[in-house]
Write a protein that binds this DNA or RNA. Structure first.
Lengths: 283, 283
DNA sequence: CGTAGGGTTGACAGCTTTCAAGAAGTGTGG
DNA sequence: CCACACTTCTTGAAAGCTGTCAACCCTACG
């Protein structure tokens, strides 16, 4: 599992002096194969291994900022180890946590079309990321079909994950939101080989609260509630899921069912061959 | 603007009889150039016009289902005209609106990595979409660099839009959420050439409420509030933005600023050259 | 004309936010 | 090693807002 670190380990004295060589390709390199493995493309096909290209790896200490909101999008990043958070400072100074990213997740893609980052990425622990310069990314994708495919899949997962977030916030009750968050966290950790029942939250309550869209006191209270019901055990940021089935049950409560039956969806697709005259109707 | 419809207009009698030829390549075809134009790739470069490929166009009547949650992901779709909504039925039957999609937006990409749709797409008016079969999509992208680039950008925008959603729901007060929604709508309509100050909502209050994560009565009340303050004028689904600056001001209210100063972000990137031993710390 | 769905508004219970204070953990420096 | 400062986390109490239930109006449609 740690074999991917083999390409690193030199220039250990870079520390945060690296901040001086502003965003230089620092910290080390890794083989493309490592990148693909982290991105979960191992099972696909060991097709084009004619790619000897190395990938830059950046190492981040806890709290380090990978990129700043408003800064130019010079690279795409794939989380290699650790975890990052994406935060967006509102115009009034409040900063909103948009997402948490773990190994295999892509950072910065959403800013590609504008060339400017729409949020900052901050490491929540000692982390490392693969850096893929946007300049030359197309060429690289053309050269390596495996990378291209892996990126597509990663982006698809990313978009899928964004849907999860919407689901998270769709819940009304704070307890339900927190339950869903814990389950989401559990699934995510399980997918990278960690225990889904016992884990350490890397983020503070305030960040969780921000992501869930509630006050951080409410998060604290919800933790206490779930704990007092025997669903979980909480010791600061150490979480034990004691009763997974009931936690799932707890996460399932949504708004009243009264609205469900009405906005029903037909069970079969319908199409018609009208000309694209929808514009006229909207004027 | 309507020139893109030139390739259509035949087989006008397909109507929803098309539902019988289950998901057949129906309704018509258009030139790849049309697709690229809708995707906003016109300004880029008229590079590889050696692509004579046509793209299937599906026409949908109001309420038609483009694809069902749980169904196989056979095609990617790009909205050509009209508007769609993505909905996800919760396990308990309540269906949650995840997003609204307009011209140029991609549908189905989030399901690509699993091969199964994670939500349904429903037309909110007479609409049309380009259909790109996933089978052979890679080949097509390789053939047309313009399509490849356009897709990348569209997906980037999509992901960017997902961030907007998070921002939408981050607001505490219902009035603020609705204000942000209206501004989001306004911007989106402006980007496709429609009036940003006067528009017709294609979705019912319940769908807005679902997207915003509030009760539909609350949406109704918030509309009334904003109207009584003179910020907007509401006539059923007809919206007039009367005072854009103050509406923006209204949308800017977030949670108390007290939390803002604390979780400050360093103003410069920090990096360190630790080996990827973050795994050990997480055990 | 009657029904069904969409939209608005009122009343009240319930939950969340806010303000406030205290407890517990972390890190620094003596 | 302890003291101190600082942040994080927890808990309490009151005010406010939202969810829910309910009634009513309106339009579309058969």
């Amino acid at each position: 599992m740690h074999s991917s670190a083999s390409a690193l380990g030199h220039n250990d004295h870079a520390y945060w002096h690296a901040s001086r060589r502003r965003l230089a390709p620092l910290s080390g390199e890794a083989h493309m194969a490592d990148l693909l493995r982290v991105m979960g493309a191992d099972g696909d096909a060991g097709t084009t291994w004619d790619d000897p290209l190395n990938v830059a790896v950046w190492c981040l200490r806890d709290g380090a900022v990978l990129f700043h909101e408003g800064g130019p999008t010079e690279s795409l990043f794939v989380v290699r180890s650790g975890s990052l958070k994406s935060v967006k400072l509102s115009e009034d100074g409040y900063n909103q946590v948009v997402s948490f990213a773990g190994p295999g997740q892509v950072l910065g893609f959403e800013s590609l079309h504008r060339g400017v980052h729409r949020n900052s990425a901050v490491a929540m622990e000692v982390s490392s990321v693969f850096a893929l310069p946007v300049k030359g990314l197309d060429r690289r994708r053309q050269q390596s079909a495996a990378l291209d495919m892996a990126l597509q899949m990663a982006i698809s997962r990313q978009l899928d994950g964004a849907g999860d977030m919407a689901e998270l916030m769709a819940a009304v009750a704070a307890d339900v939101r927190l339950s869903r968050f814990l389950l989401w966290m559990s699934r995510r950790l399980a997918s990278v080989g960690q225990s889904p029942l016992r884990f350490h939250l890397r983020m503070c309550r305030r960040d969780v609260a921000s992501l869930l869209g509630v006050a951080h006191e409410t998060v604290s209270r919800s933790f206490s509630n779930l704990a007092s019901e025997g669903l979980i055990k909480v010791l600061n940021r150490e979480i034990d899921i004691l009763d997974m089935p009931r936690l799932i049950e707890r996460a399932r409560c949504t708004r009243g069912l009264s609205e469900s039956a009405q906005a029903s969806i037909p069970t079969r697709s319908l199409a018609m061959a009208t000309d694209g005259t929808a514009h006229s109707a909207s004027a």
